[in-house]
């Protein structure tokens, strides 16, 4: 007995609607976030991640309102990310009902912000999201702005530094795999997971249930995140749990 590995459906939300693109482009509509999260909650999702992909200033109010509606009826943990730039953003999201807040671009440009956020709100609610691309075998670089801007930062070093600054969890996305359905970048996942002392969520590329299993067994992830396979009903959360349990992974059934 012990801690279960988590399955986390991810809602990419644009102007109040769940969307899902392929490699951050070619967006398809996948529904109302509150409705979608209610469905995942009933289906046994272990957590929900909500990424506000536009996160423009005008949309913030919509985001807080959506998060608040989700938190009022979905009694599992909710992580919210997208456009988190300062401690006021974090406070507002936590007050709206988020349990954890994911920081991505702002961490790259102001690493001290992660330290400040963890000191103020506690490491348990600070997730650092890392978007990485392979640049040579066994080397991955951090990209920002939806994968468009290289930073020169090495993914493994960056993850270690973010944990030393107080990140309580790492949400690790392979930009090469995102939306491809080819499976996680297991080399990336394992390199980061074996280098940090906090849980790593594997993200980007899930196309079938074996990929989820591989993320845990090969990638050493504590949690696996997927979007398309669940949104478009290719598989249910329940089927994913059974596949993981059959592979000997401890899950919450």
């Amino acid at each position: 007995m012990g801690l279960a590995k988590r399955i986390i459906p991810c809602l990419d939300v644009d102007q109040g609607r769940v969307v899902k693109g392929v490699q951050f482009e070619d967006i398809r509509d996948a529904g109302d976030p509150v409705e979608v999260s209610r469905r995942y909650n009933q289906a046994g999702a272990d957590e929900i991640t909500f990424l506000d992909i536009t996160a423009s200033h005008e949309n913030r109010a919509t985001t807080y309102e959506t998060v608040s509606r989700m938190a009022s009826e979905v009694f599992i943990p909710l992580t919210v990310g997208g456009g988190v730039r300062n401690t006021d953003n974090i406070r507002d999201l936590l007050l709206a009902g988020a349990d954890k807040v994911s920081i991505n671009t702002a961490a790259v440009f102001q690493p001290e912000f992660v330290k400040k956020a963890a000191d103020k709100f506690g490491s348990q609610c600070i997730v650092v999201a890392i978007d990485a691309k392979q640049v040579e075998p066994g080397m991955w670089e951090i990209f920002t702005h939806g994968g468009r801007k290289p930073t020169g930062l090495d993914a493994v070093e960056w993850a270690t530094r973010m944990v030393s600054y107080g990140a309580g969890e790492i949400l690790l996305t392979s930009m090469d795999r995102d939306g491809t359905c080819d499976g996680f970048d297991l080399g990336l996942t394992r390199s980061v997971a074996d280098s940090v002392t906090v849980p790593v969520i594997a993200s980007g590329g899930v196309g079938n249930l074996d990929h989820l299993v591989d993320g845990v067994l090969e990638g050493h992830a504590e949690a696996v995140l997927a979007a398309s396979i669940f949104h478009f009903a290719k598989y249910t959360i329940g089927e994913a749990k059974v596949a993981m349990a059959n592979a000997g992974i401890e899950v919450r059934l």
């Binding site: 012990g2 801690l3 279960a4 590995k5 988590r6 272990d46 490491s123 348990q124 309580g168 969890e169 002392t197 906090v198 849980p199 790593v200 504590e222 949690a223 919450r252």
Partner: peptide, 8 residues
């Protein structure tokens, strides 16, 4: 992995 985070 600490924090102990998840369903136990």
């Amino acid at each position: 992995k600490v924090p102990h985070m998840g369903w136990n």
